[in-house]
């Protein structure tokens, strides 16, 4: 299998935080969603991939160590960073002017096509834009030079549901050629429900769940029942439990087996948010 991104034993230590031996691979044609609460290490992982920080371990992009990527290889990466972009005094024309100096294969025609499509004002500076509008410009910049790998840090932040849908659709089309890939971090886990092929869940600098989306869809289950009924369930039948005042939520890893044992209980597919909650807060 061809991988566009490989992260091996990625470790980064700060005085109050440690990214601990992260391993994952992003195959061509796939989308990996990196989820986790604030401070879980998602952005540090992105920074290491982009070589913005020193780290231990190895990161390969297009089968090359990321320290040794040539400019041509780096041109094949598209970036959206949540907290960093051009100065807010620039307008869309200025940004286009700059980007064509930075990318040989900058596609001006495509850039303006997206600008028109997403109704971005061309004569106003970024400081006059809403957060969502700014994010649109960032996303357009990331995809207007025909990259093969998109690394997106919170790309749906501040976007309205309609544009989120459009942009997620665009991402799905982007990987449909089976050559391109996307690594995406987001707080809005519902975005990943529709597009991600693999979900990596991080907590306190560690990967605590790395699974294919289809496994979550087909094997994982969620059962909600009154606390009084909990004694009727074998403890080995569920992997995590979250207790509320009168009810409790059970995370089931093998829903087929569970349904055979407890056919009278209603089992449903967990959302990524519920999964995240149960893994972090459940016991």
């Amino acid at each position: 299998m061809k991988y566009n991104l490989e992260v091996n034993n990625l470790t980064k230590e700060y005085p109050d935080f440690k990214l601990n031996k992260l391993n994952f691979k992003l195959p061509a044609g796939k989308i990996i969603g990196l989820i986790g609460k604030n401070g879980s290490g998602k952005t540090t992982t992105i920074k290491a991939i982009l070589n913005l920080i020193n780290y231990d371990g190895q990161i390969k992009i297009f089968n090359e160590d990321n320290h040794e990527l040539t400019k041509i290889e780096r041109e094949q990466i598209g970036i959206v960073l949540d907290d960093s972009f051009f100065s807010p005094i620039l307008n869309v024309h200025d940004i286009n002017n700059l980007m064509r100096h930075f990318y040989h294969n900058w596609n001006e025609k495509q850039f303006y096509k997206y600008v028109k499509e997403f109704k971005i004002p061309t004569n106003r500076s970024l400081k006059e834009f809403s957060n969502g509008m700014k994010m649109k410009v960032k996303v357009i910049c990331a995809i207007s030079h025909e990259p093969k790998l998109l690394i997106l840090d919170e790309p749906t932040n501040g976007l309205d549901p309609i544009f989120r849908y459009e942009i997620l659709d665009m991402f799905s089309k982007f990987v449909s050629n089976n050559t391109n890939s996307i690594l995406i971090t987001t707080h809005i886990t519902s975005d990943l429900e529709h597009i991600a092929d693999e979900i990596i869940f991080m907590d306190e600098g560690k990967i605590i769940l790395d699974t294919k989306k289809e496994v979550i869809d087909n094997s994982y289950g969620l059962v909600e029942l009154p606390k009084t009924d909990l004694s009727t369930i074998n403890k080995n039948a569920y992997s995590k439990i979250l207790q509320y005042k009168d009810t409790c939520l059970l995370l089931i890893m093998d829903k087929t087996k569970f349904m055979e044992e407890y056919p009278h209980l209603n089992i449903r597919k967990p959302s990524l948010e519920e999964l995240m909650l149960l893994i972090v807060k459940g016991v």
């Binding site: 970036i79 960073l81 051009f86 990318y103 690394i151």
Partner: peptide, 8 residues
């Protein structure tokens, strides 16, 4: 700088 260093 963070953004620029992510570009080529």
């Amino acid at each position: 700088d963070k953004y620029l260093l992510s570009l080529p």
